[in-house]
């Protein structure tokens, strides 16, 4: 079996040649949490809906769990929490889960057991026999999450899974995602809440204006801009002008003759050379901290780079 649960090749879903998602080629490794990042309207949900066969691709191909998208087989072990979670409000939570369980082919006994488990996992235990029309938005999102987990899926699409949840609910969902990964399941997480994604994602893909800007291991992508924070005694503010590998500097703090600088290097592995030059120049270096980029910084870096490329191409 392939190590990738999702493989797409130039997958596009556009409306009259516009919008949606365009030429998306990516792989999602089995057992990982893949964060699909993008602004509102970037094409994240369109991509997910195309993978699930709700939308028909206009171009390209893709497989899910080894089967071509659109086929019944590709969806057999898949769970889905949509962004616009709407469920028949005339059903109770339990009835909804029972119907989904029946469609998934679960026996009555199995269904009852699994329903009991998932409602506890999503924190709906006491309210599952109430009609959905009486549920708050947060509860509807929780019942949607329970639906997504019902069939013990290998791959789970969560489209903005915490949009209606309070901070405690968000934390619970993050913990749930981590648990699912520990169980060997793959989670495809769509969100524009970068701070939330940062703590749970192993891999990320960044989509901007319908196009995939980059994708890969999040920790590797986070080194896009090699930066260090240096605490040193240095009186001159132009200490870096003769260092060609220093791309940018920013004075963060200054006190008692010491200063903290955020230094952006042109590539990884320049720290020893930087220290050597500083020492040679007579600077007293007290501390060097390698700066880890936040997901937000990584996201902005790639989006801005894409914007620049587009700008150059258009002029």
């Amino acid at each position: 079996m392939s190590d990738n649960v999702i493989e797409t090749m130039c997958l596009s879903k556009q409306y009259d040649g516009k919008g949606g998602c365009k030429q998306i080629t990516l792989q999602v490794p089995r057992g990982s949490v893949f964060g699909f990042l993008g602004q509102n309207g970037a094409g994240k949900s369109t991509f997910v809906r195309t993978m699930l066969g709700l939308l028909h691709p206009t171009e390209g191909s893709a497989t899910m769990l080894g089967h071509p998208i659109g086929s019944v087989e590709s969806r057999r072990k898949v769970g889905y929490l949509p962004e616009l979670f709407r469920y028949p409000d005339w059903l109770t939570g339990r009835q909804l889960l029972k119907h989904h369980g029946e469609i998934c082919g679960l026996s009555k006994r199995e269904r009852d057991r699994v329903i009991g488990e998932v409602v506890e996992i999503v924190g709906l235990g006491g309210r599952v026999d109430e009609r959905i029309r009486g549920y708050s938005k947060g509860m509807q999102q929780r019942i949607g999450l329970a639906c997504a987990l019902l069939s013990d899926p290998e791959l789970i699409f969560l489209d903005e899974p915490t949009s209606a949840l309070d901070p405690i609910g968000r934390k619970e969902v993050r913990e749930l995602i981590a648990r699912l990964r520990d169980q060997g399941k793959t989670v495809f997480l769509n969100s524009h809440l970068l701070s939330e994604m940062e703590s749970v994602c192993d891999y990320v893909g960044i989509i901007h204006r319908s196009e995939l800007v980059t994708s890969g291991e999040w920790r590797k992508l986070s080194t896009v801009k090699p930066q260090v924070e240096i605490t040193m005694e240095q009186t001159s503010t132009d200490w870096h002008v003769h260092l060609p590998f220093v791309k940018d500097t920013r004075l963060l703090k200054e006190w008692d003759g010491q200063s903290i600088w955020l230094v952006t290097l042109d590539q990884e592995g320049r720290v020893p050379a930087l220290l050597h030059e500083l020492m040679a120049g007579g600077a007293a270096v007290h501390e060097v901290i390698r700066k880890q980029q936040s997901l937000e910084e990584v996201f902005l870096y790639w989006v801005q780079q894409k914007e620049r490329e587009t700008h150059v191409a258009n002029h």
Binding site: R49, L52, G53, L54, V72, E73, R75, R76, V78, Y80, P82, L84, R86, Y87, P88, H100, I103, C104, G144, C147
Partner: peptide, 14 residues
């Protein structure tokens, strides 16, 4: 229109 159909059709069913 209400997107209620999404989760049904996302199941293994034609």
């Amino acid at each position: 229109e209400s997107h209620q159909i999404d989760t049904w059709l996302a199941r293994a069913m034609t």
